[in-house]
Every structure is written in structure tokens, then in C-alpha cells.
Amino acid sequence: MNIVVCIKQVPDQPTIRIDSERMTLIREGVESTINPLDRVALEAGLHLRGRAGGQVTVLSMGPPQSEESLREALAAGADRAILVTDPAFAGSDTLATSHVLARAISRLRPFPDLLLCGMKTIDSDTGHVGPQIAEELGLPQVCGVNEISLEGDSLVVERLSDGFLDTVEVTLPALISVNRDLCPVRSLALGSLETAFSQGNIARWGREELGLSEEEVGPKGSATRVQRLLTPASTRKGELVNGSPRLLVDRLIGTLEALGLLDEEDG
């Protein structure tokens, strides 16, 4: 089975620095890691390879330092790693990003049977890229999966969606985005890290290799633009109350009532 896992390198901590010109994150100097849900997707891919045989390719679009995450993916057991990188890609929204990734995937030989990715990233939080890649490649999608099993030529997956637990059969090739609960993530073995960093092979594909024009990528290829970044306004009232437990409880209940969460009482 040919599995492709899309991963993204994301900042490791909430110490965010913003490039106010480009309206994007400054990535240099901040510790980075594989987006946690992508790591789950990778683990799932490795499991499936274990059961069905085949190959796991990891793909990432990002600045050059995303190489580190791809090497970690190799250390985890991926067979092949491809970094899709080009200065022209910077500032791409999800529309442009999915276009670049879809193009890269369409260049893979053989074409994958299964595309896996995390349901969303901890920085952008949108969850758009997976479905948008699926749309461009004309593949069926199932998002938020927490259980996968192989049944012949198709996949049977389970996911919780708006309070419904769906069991879905999807024909391959398809795109599946995964949820945290899908499988536990194993720590990386030290020797594998050593090998992945000293010997691992990372292919690099840029705009020209992918046959993309400048208008298709970056800000020009994007439909949305971040106009400005704000920190959530400190609209918290911050009222502090001291007193007996009785007093505190009464205040709390008063707030519940004010929010309409309790029926008004006469007693």
C-alpha cells in the first residue's frame, strides 16, 4: 500500500513572534516540532504499512528548517521524505498550500493509495488543507477519524461528527484526516534519530520542479489575506471576590443565572 502522510512543522511553544509586514509567523529561533496530529497520522501510516506492506512517504511544505521534522519522520520509520520548499510559497493561504501539495502528490509515482494528515494544526487551526487537497485531486475524504481498518480494497473508518459516531467505508485512493485518539505515538529510538540525521535522504522540490507559476502560489495564489493580527482583547472583567464559602457560592450561582444557565427560581 502506498501511503503519503502530509506533515507540517509548527512552533513548539506559545512564544509567538509575528512578522508584521508579511503577517505571518517568524519561524527562525523558535523551537519547532511536527504538528502533533500529523505525528498521529504518521504513526497510523506506519501501522498500516505494517499490516498491508508498502511504503510510507512523508511530505511537507515549509521553509528549509522543516527538514528537521522530515528527518524525525524518517526516524519514526517513514521510507521516503520530500520537502516542498521555495521562497515563492511563503505567505500561502490554505487554498494555495493545498494546490502546491496536491501538485506534489500528483507527481508521485506510483500515485498513493492513501493520503493521511492530521485533522488540524496547532498554529493555523483551520483544518482546511486536507479537504482542499482531496478536492483538487478528486479524492473522497473522511475527516476526524479515530479508528481505521483495512477491508480488501477499501478502508473502513470510524469518526465522531457532531455527536454521531459514523462507521464509513471509503474506496481508495482517499484522504483521511486523523484525530488524536486514533493511536498512541511512540517515542523515537535514539539510533533511528542518529541514522535519520546523518544518513537520511530528503528530496527537495521547488516551484519550478512542480511546474507552478508564480501566480498560483504565495500571496498571489491565495484567496484570503491576513489583514492584521490581534491578541484577544483583555475583555475579562477580572472581578475578585473574597468571603465565606456561602458568599462565594451565591456569587457563582448568581452568575449562572445571569448567563441563563439556570431557571429563575422563586425560592
Partner: peptide, 20 residues
């Protein structure tokens, strides 16, 4: 640290914090 050493340190730290 090299990229490799940084990755090793981070991997061990995550393991140690969660398991040890």
C-alpha cells in the same frame, strides 16, 4: 547544537517528562 542534537534532546525530554 546541530539539528540532530536538538532533535535528540527534544525527543528525550518529551519521553522523560511523560514517562519518567
Amino acid at each position: 547544537p546541530t539539528m540532530k542534537q536538538a532533535a535528540i534532546r527534544r525527543t528525550v525530554r518529551e519521553f522523560a517528562e511523560s514517562r519518567l
